[in-house]
Design a protein around this nucleic acid. Structure first.
Length: 647
DNA sequence: ACGGGTGTCACG
DNA sequence: TCGTGACAC
């Protein structure tokens, strides 16, 4: 549910930038022959031509709509070019578009705080840049304002035919304007420039809204597409909202909007305006009620979060109808593919952004054909995330099995494992969340691990299989994952890239909590690495685990992993593992704690045994941590916009 | 038992 | 905390 946030008293300049039919543009850049032609991007074209996920403006003229099937689109527009989303491991692979989105963000984030709202949308807080421009180089002093600026739409201006550009020019330059309007004018100049930079550097066009808050900016960005921008002066807000159907507003496109319509008879924002705040609160709760009351007045205090990297990564696939997965082995195969993709994405996040994810979650949809209760939701499950493809696969499968038991109930437990018992999985997904900045040194430590990890499976096999992969039986006793799909963890070396990219990422301007600032003197890197690297993990199946827990921890708290990494010390502790089969959440809570390590428990004497370049970094952890990661919030604008000389 | 795959947020 | 539901593109 939406929540009301107080609106800052000083006027802000907020922009929402929205790429025009983004996936299509990405494909057209790759295949320039398609430029200007009716084009759509489809995924999976075997069933009814696939589903459209983006439609070019040329194709829209023919009535082609998103969420048509490819076949339907061909019917209304026979010349349409349908481009397929790349497929990898049997599923749609969106990396091409994600990366293109990153290109755009790296440009748009140059002038102020930037929030990546989706793969193709960002919010910008340009308040500081606009204030600076206004004080140092106000538009009224500009002899020439760029064309792109003059093409702006300014809501509330008399849209007199022919005189529009002159009106806009006057609006931008008039010195009698209120401060708020001048700020918006500066914002619009900055945004026009950013959009031109995006076009020059990526060949992508976008549309934008410029207003005093996110809600209005978002509303405006969609008003004149493609490749145009719209400004919302305060004086136009009332008129803009008055006739607006509530379902057009963000957050009101779904059930809440429906309820407003059918329960309160509210169809436009002005209808909503009639309701006293208390009435709205009575019906929708205090938060949502106030939020509704506010947005009907154009009030929205949401801040632009300085975040250009995603908070989570997920991979999923649907298995509709007849494709439903009915055997645990096919679930496992798909899970392995999904986890492999997820692992790759985590690996690049680590390399490019130096971030680590801490939670793995499995979601699925399933039906039970026999049962009366066949509607029951398939529960999500999560556990600590251990790096390495094989680990993720193994954990995901355990999560799935655990969830499947819950889903099916405790009856008939001995048959649940293998063959179809009347259940079918219609969707599977794995995701990684709780992503934090990696502790310093992760890069070179990982490189060290890579350098001593055998690339051939032979030596690793005997080690990891014997030591760690005698899998526990699930409580039902029917499934063992041991020996199945033991893929090579860490297929590629990331060492060099890690080193090269450290600190150089252009996308790394996020406010990122560094772990050490959260964990305060704790260090989870050892746990992180231990979980990641089979060759250095201690035994973790339940039998051995119990045995190990009974062992006293060596005084130094350090264990040596001599097999492949002579001299590398790792602290041993009861292994975090199998929390999915832990009956009590208290128990898993305790175990989670085991995953982090107190820095002061590291025996300083072992540092000498580390490789030299790592020694230094580990010593760094042991020093009293001062402010580990000064948070940079809202970059200071050093270069405000200078209009390109153009007449 | 489908627009599909991803992502964010608020709630209990 | 985790798991769910809603919403959006």
């Amino acid at each position: 549910m939406p929540v009301a946030r107080p609106e800052p008293s000083d006027a802000r300049v907020i922009s929402h930038v929205d790429m025009d039919c983004f996936y299509v543009q990405v494909e057209q850049r790759k295949q320039p022959e398609l430029r200007g032609l009716p084009t759509a991007v489809v995924q999976y074209n075997s069933w009814q031509g696939g589903g459209l996920i983006a439609v070019s403006y040329e194709a829209r003229k023919y009535g082609v709509k998103r969420s048509m099937r490819g076949d339907e689109a061909k019917k209304v527009c026979p010349q349409i070019h349908l481009v397929q989303v790349p497929v990898a491991r049997g599923k749609a692979d969106l990396n091409l578009y994600r990366n293109a989105g990153s290109e755009v963000v790296s440009i748009l984030s140059r002038k102020g705080r930037c929030e990546r709202a989706s793969i193709d949308e960002v919010y910008l807080d340009l308040t500081d840049a606009a204030e600076t421009m206004l004080s140092e180089n106000p538009p009224e002093m500009l002899e020439a304002v760029d064309d792109e600026v003059l093409k702006s739409h300014v809501l509330g201006l008399d849209e007199d035919e022919g005189k529009e550009v002159e009106n806009v020019r006057e609006w931008f330059c008039r010195s009698s304007a209120e401060h708020r309007d001048k700020l918006l004018a500066c914002g619009a100049i900055i945004v026009a420039d950013l959009r031109m930079q995006v076009f020059k550097e990526t060949q992508f066009t976008c549309s934008a809204g410029i207003a005093h808050n996110k809600m209005l900016a978002k509303l405006a960005s969609g008003m004149n597409k493609p490749a145009q921008q719209t400004v919302v002066p305060l004086s136009s807000v009332e008129g803009l909202l008055a006739s607006l159907p509530i379902k057009k507003m963000k957050q009101l496109g779904g059930k809440l909007g429906n309820s407003l319509q059918s329960d309160l008879g509210v169809n436009t924002v002005s209808d909503l305006l009639q309701f006293p705040e208390e009435k709205l609160q009575e019906r929708y709760g205090i938060n949502t009620g106030t939020w509704l009351w506010n947005i009907s007045r154009g009030i929205s205090g949401d801040e632009v979060e300085g975040r250009i990297l995603p908070k989570s990564h997920g991979c999923g696939k649907n298995f509709p109808g007849p494709q439903a997965l009915r055997k645990i082995t096919s679930v496992q195969r798909w899970l392995n593919d999904l986890c492999e993709e997820l692992s790759e994405r985590l690996q690049s996040d680590l390399v490019q952004n130096k971030r680590v994810a801490h939670t793995l979650t499995l979601h699925a949809r399933a039906y039970k054909s026999n049962d009366s209760d066949s509607q029951r939701k398939f529960p999500s499950k999560s556990c600590p995330l251990r790096y390495g493809t094989a680990k993720i696969q193994e954990d995901a499968l355990k999560l799935f099995n655990s969830a499947l038991r819950d889903f099916l109930g405790s009856h008939r437990s001995e048959t649940l494992g293998n063959q179809n018992n009347g259940w079918g999985v219609t969707a599977l997904s794995v995701s990684a969340s709780k992503i934090l900045a990696a502790p310093p040194g992760t890069g070179s430590i990982l490189r060290f691990f890579h350098s001593c990890e055998p690339s051939s499976s032979s030596s690793k096999q005997n080690f990891s299989e014997i030591i760690q992969d005698s899998a526990p039986l699930s409580p039902s006793g029917s499934l063992s994952s041991s020996g199945l799909n033991q893929a090579e963890p860490q297929k590629r070396s990331t060492a060099e890239e890690t080193q090269i990219n450290c600190g150089t990422s252009t996308l790394n301007q996020d406010e990122q909590k560094r772990e050490s600032s959260n964990y305060k003197g704790r260090c989870s890197i050892l746990g992180f690495l231990k979980g990641s690297k089979p060759s250095c993990s201690s035994s973790k199946h339940e039998g051995a685990e119990i045995a190990q827990e009974a062992l006293p921890v060596p005084p130094s708290g350090i264990d040596y992993c001599t097999e492949h990494n002579p001299g590398l010390p790792l602290k041993r502790s009861p292994e975090e593992e199998n929390i999915v089969s832990q009956p009590s959440s208290d128990h898993s809570q305790q175990r989670r704690e085991m995953w982090t390590y107190r820095v002061d428990e590291i025996d300083p004497s072992v540092i000498d045994e580390l490789p030299p370049e790592i020694q230094e970094e580990v010593r760094g952890w042991l020093r009293p941590l001062k402010r580990a990661n000064p948070v940079k919030r809202g970059s200071s604008i050093t270069n405000y916009y200078l209009p390109s000389r153009k007449k």
